[in-house]
Write a protein that binds this DNA or RNA. Structure first.
Length: 938
RNA sequence: GGGCCGUUGGCGCAGUGGUAGCGCGCUCCCUUGACAUGGGAGAGGUCAUAGGUUCAAAUCCUAUACGGCCCACCA
């Protein structure tokens, strides 16, 4: 016996255990057998617990995996986690800060040990949460982006790229995050509109200090590094200034006026200051005009403080320096006695910020590892163009393609400790003068070149282990000075690059590396390329594009055929969930309160392709109620229809039924069941998971429960009907539960266990039972006929409700109207009696009985004698309103049918449809009008 | 500056050419023998605006307005 209400907790833990014991989600390569269906999880970062976005992402994947397993594919869903680079290191640094320690104080080795502990803890939290969410992951395949197997793939890829000349080291302008202390790639910078100021400054001409060139800046602190002022080559206003020397206010540094196409003549004065080392565009201008201007100066350091080059401002944090410089400028007058600071405007502009810590990015020149992307990106463009790779929904294709076409080189190195250390070793003997170290030896910190450190007696091992050295090439590395890809070079004094790789580099290899690549393992051969990747659109470029490029470059195949991009889980008002807004919903809390199945169903049914998901607690009450609904539906079938009798051998099967002798309702529900299955299949094939969920919800609740189950009740005492009803209830319910299983795995598993013997099945799990076989039988006529019955019932119920007939009061009804429709309805009069709670339904032999109300439905009229109950004023109002409605519809039909071009050009079917509709409305209208008239007389 | 998406009842959303739907909320009635996490009946929308195509437009086209996102990046 099932409980009266569905209580998720016990059911969930029961099946979590059972699935685990049976290793239900395990997959083995089955070459030549079942076709693989593979998904690799977007590995969550080991930064903490999972949020609603993860719940959505993994629900969608689990729906797909379970669905395809049900349909007979060898489904494999690979679990894993991502080391998460900067994000994770930041989490640890916060922890350390709370303890009053910095990572530098701890040292690289100990810091990494701490990280490993944290990772272990975090992984188990995450995997536990995924388990709780019901995810059918093949847990034996758990991977981590920084474990040994993945490291192998990373080293292989890096080395290969290096050998192919795609990976190189160079000194370039990069996006530097002062807070995180590392370079970032271009896509890791987020631009935010911020309110700031535009300061207009006058730079005097050196030979004639009373003449000025006015330039504007949003970052006055960079002026200390100015080496030029640029004007447009065709700008006549400044034609005679080009080549002249200016003098930088505050410091007196010399600047040259250069002509460069980049300058927008229409902006401001048309003259722009040039700070080569602190602005990407200025850097480019410098490269084009290097010979024409003084040597660039780096005035802001990697620590965000002004360098020694900043003279009087050295040592100040950049923000402080800005304030001081503005103040100093304000106090400064030119040779003409007018202020140097011409004006200050409020100005809105976009500021690049770090996607991990949200602090302003500092463009700085630094030496980093880069990857050339153009050739690799071309392969990805080709794959999306020729259909080897498809993005769902398709609207993401264009942005994806555009990004690839305009791709720029990828800055691979990060100046953090947590990550895959770059697999490059430098020959210390050769580069001793260019490797700078900062190493503690005998309580003294030795700073200088490696040679100096070795001369001072610091053992080489100490330098290597300390890991705080820096290779400064100042140009190209000499041949033989560096080795790539080897774990530990076999001889010599080798120092590994101190930087780590962008976390996305190992992520990019994920679909390859989880199957043992670069080895051509059995797993790899069977599961790769994977079927589909499901992820949020916010990492389309960061991750999806890069995986495509890696897969295509190394294996010549796409790593996944389809990518499903889902939206972001937001709050009900469309705001992104964030701790600072306090609108975060914790999936665990929700699952505890409403059940996992309800949570999953809510997410799945809200996830229309490509749309963000507005989510609030009340999004889950519907699905929670739905779970309870199917629970009680099953309870009805078991306790009332089957009376908990011992199941017959083979169960109640549909095969034993003679389709020809089925009643209308039977044929109708079987047809609708079949149509629902078709709708689910179609929706799933197009990754419209929400639509599939909707179809099941509507079928089970609005059709099966509200109509078929209600009708079945009257047949349960009929010995002839009982076996038929039982078979249909059991089979339609069991099949529906199977279809629902990918969405609500726990409750369907529990209910299936209770039903399976009656269904003639013995599988221990739904997934092993397989999808319901298509009936291949439908009776479209039954759907139409059932519509007539349903409308009749609805009209009678409406009459009862609107005239306040007590629900318990059994009433009599007489029908009249169109002969053909009456004949059609006659065999199903019992349905109407039952559902409209009539004690009798008879022909109205003598027209409208006195003291009766009237219900019309299509071409049928029902008279309900209600002497003593009826309120005729109320009835008149009701009829008048109904007549008005019908008249309006009738008018619409008339209009169309008197429209010559409609009759001429519309398809015949359409015209016939309108004619039939007109017929119906005419019949309703005359019947209603007649009743109203006779009421008026009485 | 370029691109994409959206604008449908109070709220959140489906619906891609033929009588406007769903969930929540709201009103009224009902402890009817699965379920009150339920049942029944309702109210509520000129489908952002203006043109156009078509026999027929929420649906296709064009423009506009508003909202959101992405990319580029503006000194």
């Amino acid at each position: 016996m099932l409980e009266k209400a569905y209580a998720p907790e016990a059911v969930e833990s029961k099946w979590i255990e059972a699935w685990k014991r049976a290793d239900l989600f395990h997959s083995e390569p089955d070459p030549g057998g079942k076709k693989s269906y593979t998904i690799v999880i977007p590995p969550p970062n080991v930064t903490g617990a999972l949020h609603m976005g993860h719940a959505l992402n993994n629900t969608l994947q689990d729906v797909l995996v379970r669905y395809h397993r049900l349909t007979g594919r060898e489904a494999c869903w690979v679990p894993g986690t991502d080391h998460g680079g900067i994000a994770t290191q930041n989490v640890m640094e916060k922890q350390l800060k709370a303890e009053g320690v910095t990572r530098q104080q701890l040292g690289r080795g100990k810091f990494l040990d701490r990280m490993q502990d944290w990772v272990r803890e975090c992984k188990s939290t995450i995997l536990g949460q995924l388990t709780r969410l019901g995810c059918g992951l093949d847990f034996g395949r758990e991977a981590f982006t920084m474990d040994e197997a993945r490291a192998k793939a990373v080293h292989y890829a890096f080395k290969k790229f290096y050998e192919e000349g795609l990976v190189y080291r160079g000194e370039r302008m990069v996006n530097w995050c002062v807070r995180c202390g590392t370079a970032l790639s271009d896509i890791e910078v987020e631009f935010e509109e911020k309110k700031g100021h535009l300061w207009h400054m006058r730079y005097p001409l050196k030979d004639d200090p009373k003449r000025f060139l006015t330039v504007a800046t949003t970052r006055p602190e960079t002026m200390l590094g100015d080496t030029a002022v640029a004007v447009h080559p065709k700008d006549e206003r400044y034609a005679d200034w080009v080549g002249k020397e200016l003098s930088l206010p505050l410091t007196g540094h010399a600047l040259t006026v250069v002509a460069d196409e980049h300058v927008d003549r229409a902006f401001g004065t048309g003259a722009v200051k040039v700070t080569p080392f602190h602005d990407p565009n200025d850097f480019e201008i410098w490269q084009r005009h290097e010979r024409e201007m003084p040597a660039p100066r780096q005035v802001i350091g990697l620590d965000g403080k002004m360098t020694d080059e900043a003279g009087a401002y050295a040592g100040l944090p950049r923000e402080e320096a800005r304030k001081k410089i503005v103040a100093d400028l304000e106090a400064l007058a030119g040779a003409d006695g007018e202020p140097i600071l011409e004006k200050t405007e409020a100005y809105k502009h976009s500021v690049g910020t770090c996607y991990r810590c949200n602090q302003p990015i500092e463009p700085l020149v630094s030496e980093q590892w880069f990857m050339k992307m153009e050739a690799v990106a071309e392969k990805a463009v080709a794959a999306v163009d020729d259909g080897r790779f498809t993005i769902y929904p398709e609207s993401w294709k264009k942005p994806y393609r555009d990004w690839l076409v305009n791709i720029r080189d990828w800055c691979l190195s990060r100046q953090i400790w947590w990550g895959h250390r770059i697999p490059v070793w430098y020959d210390a003997d050769i580069l001793a003068d260019r490797i700078r170290v900062s190493v503690e030896h005998g309580g003294v910190v030795v700073k200088g070149t490696l040679r100096e450190a070795l001369d001072a007696g610091v053992p080489f091992e100490t330098v290597r282990d300390a890991g705080r050295y820096r290779y400064e090439s100042g140009g190209k590395a000499a041949g033989g000075a560096l080795r790539v890809g080897a774990e530990i070079p076999e001889e010599g004094r080798w120092l590994q690059d101190q930087d780590v790789l962008d976390t996305w580099f190992s992520s990019a290899l994920w679909p390859l590396s989880v199957f043992g690549w670069p080895e051509k393992t059995e797993d790899f051969k069977f599961y790769y390329p994977t079927s589909v990747l499901v992820t949020g659109y916010e990492i389309l470029y960061l991750w999806v594009a890069r995986m495509q490029m890696m897969g295509l470059h190394f294996e010549g195949t796409v790593p996944f055929h389809h990518a499903v991009m889902h939206g972001i889980v937001r709050d009900k008002r469309g705001k992104k969930m964030s701790k600072s807004l306090g609108n975060v919903i914790d999936p665990l809390v929700v699952m505890d309160k409403y059940g996992t199945d309800a949570t999953r169903f809510a997410l799945a049914s809200l996830a229309y392709p490509g749309k963000d998901i507005p989510f609030a607690e009340d999004s889950i009450t519907g699905p929670r109620n739905f779970a309870n609904k199917i629970w009680n539906l099953t309870r009805f079938v078991l306790d009332y229809a089957l009376k908990n009798e011992t199941p017959p051998a083979g169960g109640y099967s549909l095969d034993s039924l003679d389709r020809g002798s089925l009643e209308l309702a039977d044929r109708w529900i079987l047809s609708r069941y079949e149509e629902t299955a078709e709708a689910v299949r179609a929706s799933m094939a197009g990754y419209n998971i929400a639509a599939a969920a909707d179809a099941l919800y509507g079928f089970l609740w609005d059709e099966f429960c509200d109509w078929y189950v209600e009708l079945s009740k009257s047949g349960l005492d009929d010995a002839a009907r009982l076996p038929v009803i039982r078979a249909i209830l059991v089979q339609v319910l069991t099949g529906s539960l199977k279809m629902l299983h990918p969405f609500m795995p726990y409750i369907t598993e529990e209910l299936y266990e209770n039903l399976r013997a009656y269904a003639g099945e013995s599988a221990d799990f739904v997934l092993r039972a397989g999808a319901p076989a298509p009936e291949g039988w439908k009776d479209p006529g039954s759907v139409a006929s059932m519509g007539v019955v349903m409308d009749a019932v609805r009209s009678l119920r409406a009459l009862r409700a609107q005239l306040n007939v007590p629900p318990a009061l059994k009433i009599k009804a007489f029908h009249s109207g169109d002969e053909a429709e009456l004949r059609a309805l006659a065999p199903h009069a019992g349905y109407v009696r039952h559902l409209a709670r009539l004690e009798a339904l008879e022909a109205a032999a003598n027209g409208r009985p006195a003291q009766s109300a009237t219900a019309v439905s299509r071409k049928l009229t029902f008279f309900v004698p209600l002497a003593g109950v009826i309120d005729f004023d109320r009835e008149r109002t009701r009829l008048t309103k109904e007549i008005a409605r019908v008249a309006k519809e009738l008018e619409k039909c008339r209009k169309q049918l008197t429209n010559a071009s409609f009759l001429e050009r519309a398809p015949v079917d359409e015209v016939d449809k309108i004619r039939a509709r007109q017929d119906e409305f005419e019949s309703m209208h005359s019947s209603l009008a007649a009743t109203l008239e006779s009421l008026g007389e009485s």
